[in-house]
Structure formats: structure tokens, C-alpha cells
Design a protein around this nucleic acid. Structure first.
Length: 548
RNA sequence: GCGGUUGUAGCUCAAUGGAUGAGAGCGCCUGAUUUCGAAUCAGGAGGUUGUAGGUUCGAGUCCUACCAGCCGUACCA
């Protein structure tokens, strides 16, 4: 709708300029807004205000001339100019009513957009990717929920989406993990050893005990680092996989960092950079030049010959955008990684990859408190709160909703005790209750033998009905907006507004009544509301209950 | 020090450079059910959008400085 309005405005300006009603100038991009104040209509265009200087005319006058040249005003009952120079569009009630049939027809697809012409764009979203050195903790939950919801949003926008988890399965930390497990295993076999310094968490004790039970002392005496590394990784990753399922997340691929080296991707990328003379040696290490002098140089290969994490990052982005040919690569990173954004994009550019294909979402970190006291989050010390613990207490839907309501760039604090106490007040239940109430209306209608077949949507003229339709029709716009702005939290706010519009309608309008025709029409409206609520809840990865 | 980011109601947070109303939820106060589900609805109190300047027809939003919090500033990941 917004793009259509923008188009008609543009043509109106052009024809006004041809005739001379407006002077010639290059019009700015036409912005179509949804005004906050309902009396200002459904859509508003402030372009006349922006063009006042260019046209050297009063904004009100510009707006009036544009309106005079508008060709198509079909779905609108009113197009008016308001001071200081807005052009306001009001949708006609009959048009609004007719959209209800439209929503019913689209059903589960309502709010989704078809793929672009020429086939769907391939987008890869890599998220969570928590180091496999410990359990899935609450802090990472935000990453997971953001990534998964964005994946759902891109799917709704006609993209072909792949969800990927990048496993950091090499490096110093993994070596420490292996030696820590070796100690736990030995302890499980009754050896008197000091607790590991590196990874002291309970989960390694359990894995050590499991190994002792399965293998006895077979791995006790020789150097079994490789075995320990493998066992620790696979068991921890399995646990993470199970825990992500707990909140409705599944990955399409688990990508191993070490595979970048075994399949020679790294070698190819390294040679490419070297061929372009972008690598140089200093202090025994190999560095990558910065894009310009202001950018810092970064170490790619350490002086002991081992590649850095950054080296893997470069090979990985090549793997994504060149080898696997994704159109876009989305990264979800904690804000503590913000320093890496520029160097990754610069490296991509050095490889002739368009850096615009890389979208990096930074989210502020989550701090955990319990009754106001900060809780430390550290896998090394074994001091952490897992997603599983919290989900067991408050449920997956409330957990996801809680993490999703904040925009990514606002730091959030979760108080565990408060979260438990208030979980019954979580707004997700408000939204789900609206859905369940509608299901209940349909159960009632069935008992009474009422159906929505043949319902005439033109009967839906009560102000609460019109308002509910307006809210329902916002849904596709919200989906689009949340995607292009990478702002999935918008879904949670819209869901509450939609539910509120339904509850207000419920107060004012009985659905199952004596008047069969009005009943049928209202059942249609209520069905449309239910479809929209359900599609929204699905997009947020939450359950859609018929009863609560 | 330098760089990034955040500062909005008692609390947790929204708000696409727009309109005499900066909005929700929680908490607090007052009301509503012989009715399709009260996990609901209606109303009230509560704000100098950290401070000071600037740009703009128009600023919570953009720019500058300052104050406060968080993060980064590794041949860790």
C-alpha cells in the first residue's frame, strides 16, 4: 500500500511539473508514514514539507497542487491536505471490510510475501555459534531467539533461508577443554587430581563419569587429547542441540571451523590474498593489510605458524559467499564483537566480495541478576545459568517473548526471580489468550450450528470491527518493516496491539447472536483475526493454543 | 586515552526526522461479569526524553561538547 501511494504521488508531481503547476526539481524520496493520531488518516505523506525549499513555494500550496493531480484514489474515502503540509489518506470503510475475505483466502500465507522474480534469494543466517565449551546459557539465548526469528522473517519475505551454527572446534580453548576433561575422567576413575583450572563446570564432571563408565581406564595412561577433544565436543554439541530444540530452534547445518582447513578453503583464500600482496610479515607473524591507513592490520598467522580466529573468519566468509554462493550472509554477534565488523568487511572486499552482502546484527549483552544481585556468567568457572533451567521454570514461549521484546541495541537485564514471579504476567499469554478466545467462539458457534459461510463482510461497520480490521491489515507491513530494519522485536509489539483490538471488539460485539447474517460476517472477521494472530505467533516461534 | 554503544514514567521497555497526546506492560488507585472464556475490559495518577548548545519548516531521533553506565582497544575466541 505504501509503495502504491508513493507511486501515485510521484506521478502526480511529474504531471504537475509538466503542466507547470509545480516548478521543475528533483523530488525527494516519497515517504509514506502511518500517523500516530488516528484523525490524521491511515497514511500520511509529508513530501510537500520536504519540497518547500526546492519548489520555493508554501508547503500547503504544494500539497494542494499534488492532490489535484492525483489520478488513482480508489481505496480511499478521503485524501486531504492538512497544515502544515501533510497529505493524509483515509481508507474507505467498505474497502477495509472487503479485505477480510482476502485474509481468509490467504490463510496461513497471510503476511508472507512471494519470492522475488527470478527465484528466491538465498540467504544464510549464522547465529548462536556459541563456543562448544559448555552448555547453552541464558546470555546466548538472546542470540538464538534473534537469529531464529529473523530467519522466520526472511522466509516470510520469500527468501530461501539456511540456518547455520558455526562450531569453533579448534584453538586454544578447545585444547583446554580436552585437558580439563582428561582430568575429570581421571577423577571419575578415582585418581587423586586437582580440579581443572580451565573448565571447572559440572557438565565436564558428568561427561568424565560417562566416559569412565563406558571405557573404564582405557584412556587413562597415554596422551589421549584427541579422543578427549572429540568426546567433549560431540557431547557438548549434542546437549546444545537438544537445548535449542527446547525453544523451537533447529539448524540446517552445523559447520565445523576445522573443515575450513581440511578441505583447503583456507589455503585457497590465503593464496588469493598473498597473490594480491595483501599479506606481509612482521615479528614472525603474517598480517593482513588494512583497507586504508587508518584501519588496523590484523594477524592472520601467528609466529608459531598457527592461523588465528580471524583467518578462519576470512575463509568462512569466502565459503559462504563464493563457494556456496549465498546472496546474503547474516551474522548475529554480541556487541562485544563490534570491533570485528569492519575488519571482516574489509577482508571480504579484499577477496572481491561485495561487503554489502554481509549483514551483521549486533545485540547488546544480557546481564543476569537474581533478586537484584548480579550473577556471573562464565563457562570456565562453571558459574552460569542455562537456558534449560529458565525454560523449565517459565516455558519456551515466555522465554522467547521476553528476549524478543527488546530491540537488539538495548542492553537488557534479566532478573531470574522476577522473571519467574512475573512469568504468568508475560504478554505472550495476552496474545495467546486472544487466539484461544476465538477458538472458543468457534466451538460455541458449532454448538449453535452457526457458520461463516456466505457471510457478508459489508455488515462489519461497528467502530470496533473497523478498528480490528485496520489492525489485521497492518500485519504484512509489520512483517516487511521488521525484516528490512532487522527489528524482530516489532512483532511482539504488534501482536499485543492486535490482541488488544480483538479484546475491545469482543467487549463491544457479540459474535454468536440471533441475527444469522451478522453472526456469519463476524465469524469471518474473527477468523481473520485468528489467522493473523496465529501467523504472528508462528513467526515469533511460539505456540498457538486453542485452549489455555 | 582512543573507538563503539546506551541514557525516555517508580520498574522493564517502545516510538520510520513529523502533527495542540512521547506510548505500552508491570506496579499503584477507581470501576465493570445473571452475557461467545475476567489470562479480559473501561478510567485515573505518574515525563523538563541525562545536561548544554547547534542543524531543520519540524528533533526522543541528526551534529558538537560534557556527564553517567556497558563493551572493545590480544600473535583469546
Amino acid at each position: 500500500m505504501q509503495t502504491e501511494i508513493a507511486k501515485t504521488i510521484t506521478t502526480a508531481i511529474e504531471s504537475a511539473q509538466e503542466i507547470g503547476a509545480l516548478p521543475h526539481f528533483k523530488p525527494p524520496e516519497i515517504v509514506v508514514e502511518r500517523p500516530k493520531e488516528p484523525s490524521h488518516g491511515d497514511y500520511a505523506v509529508p513530501s510537500a514539507l520536504q519540497m518547500a525549499r526546492l519548489a520555493r513555494m508554501a508547503p500547503l500550496q504544494i500539497a494542494e497542487r499534488i492532490v489535484n493531480f492525483l489520478e488513482e484514489t480508489a481505496p480511499f474515502s478521503q485524501v486531504e491536505v492538512a497544515p502544515p503540509g501533510f497529505i493524509n489518506f483515509r481508507l474507505s470503510e467498505s474497502w477495509l471490510m472487503q479485505q477480510v475475505d482476502n485474509v481468509l483466502q490467504r490463510g496461513p500465507a497471510y503476511g508472507a510475501f512471494p519470492p522475488k522474480k527470478g527465484g528466491p534469494k538465498k540467504i544464510q543466517i549464522e547465529f548462536l555459534s556459541a563456543n562448544p565449551t559448555g552448555p547453552f546459557v541464558v546470555g546466548s539465548g538472546r542470540n538464538a531467539v534473534l537469529g531464529d526469528t529473523l530467519a522466520r522473517l526472511f522466509q516470510a519475505n520469500g527468501y530461501e533461508v539456511q540456518r547455520e551454527y558455526y562450531i569453533n572446534d579448534i584453538g586454544t580453548q578447545i585444547d583446554h577443554l580436552a585437558t580439563s576433561l582428561q582430568i575429570r575422567y581421571a577423577q571419575a576413575l578415582g585418581q587423586d587430581m586437582a580440579d581443572p583450572k580451565e573448565y571447572a563446570g559440572q557438565y565436564l564432571v558428568e561427561i568424565g563419569e560417562a566416559l569412565a563408565e563406558e571405557y573404564g581406564d582405557r584412556f587413562l595412561y597415554d596422551d589421549n587429547t584427541d579422543f578427549m577433544r572429540h568426546e567433549a565436543l560431540s557431547r557438548i554439541l549434542n546437549a546444545i542441540r537438544e537445548d535449542t530444540k527446547l525453544i523451537g530452534i533447529r539448524f540446517d547445518r552445523w559447520f565445523s571451523e576445522s573443515s575450513l582447513y581440511t578441505d583447503h578453503t583456507y589455503e585457497v583464500v590465503y593464496n588469493k590474498l598473498e597473490h594480491q600482496r595483501l599479506l606481509f610479515e612482521r615479528d614472525g607473524a603474517i598480517w593482513l593489510k588494512g583497507e586504508d591507513n587508518e584501519d588496523k592490520e590484523n594477524v592472520v598467522v601467528r609466529s608459531d605458524g598457527r592461523p588465528t580466529y580471524f583467518a578462519s573468519d576470512i575463509a568462512y566468509v569466502w565459503d559462504k559467499l563464493v563457494k556456496r554462493n549465498f546472496d546474503q550472509a547474516v551474522y548475529i554477534w554480541g556487541a562485544d564483537h563490534h570491533g570485528h565488523v569492519k575488519r571482516l568487511k574489509n577482508a571480504a572486499e579484499s577477496l572481491n566480495i561485495n561487503p554489502d552482502k554481509i549483514m551483521i546484527i549486533l545485540y547488546q549483552l544480557v546481564s543476569i541478576t537474581r533478586n537484584g544481585e548480579p550473577v556471573r556468567q562464565s563457562k570456565r568457572s562453571g558459574d552460569y545459568i542455562t537456558v534449560r533451567e529458565v525454560v523449565d521454570e517459565i516455558g519456551s514461549d515466555a522465554f522467547r517473548f521476553m528476549l524478543l521484546t527488546r530491540s537488539a541495541d538495548s542492553a537488557m537485564e534479566i532478573d531470574l526471580e522476577l522473571a519467574k514471579r512475573e512469568s504468568s504476567e508475560n504478554p505472550v499469554y495476552y496474545v495467546q489468550y486472544a487466539h484461544a478466545r476465538i477458538a472458543s467462539i468457534f466451538r460455541r458457534a458449532k454448538e449453535d450450528g452457526a457458520t461463516m459461510g456466505g457471510g457478508d463482510v459489508n455488515l462489519l461497520e461497528h467502530p470496533s470491527e473497523i478498528e480490528l480490521i485496520r489492525q489485521i491489515l497492518r500485519f504484512p507491513e509489520v512483517v516487511k518493516f521488521a525484516t528490512v530494519n532487522l527489528a524482530p522485536h516489532q512483532l511482539t509489539y504488534y501482536a499485543q496491539e492486535l490482541a488488544a483490538a480483538f479484546h475491545a471488539f469482543y467487549r463491544d460485539c457479540h459474535v454468536v447472536i440471533e441475527d444469522d447474517e451478522l453472526t456469519a460476517a463476524r465469524l469471518k472477521l474473527v477468523k481473520a483475526a485468528q489467522i493473523t494472530l496465529a501467523n504472528n505467533l508462528h513467526l515469533m516461534g511460539m505456540s498457538v493454543p486453542d485452549q489455555m
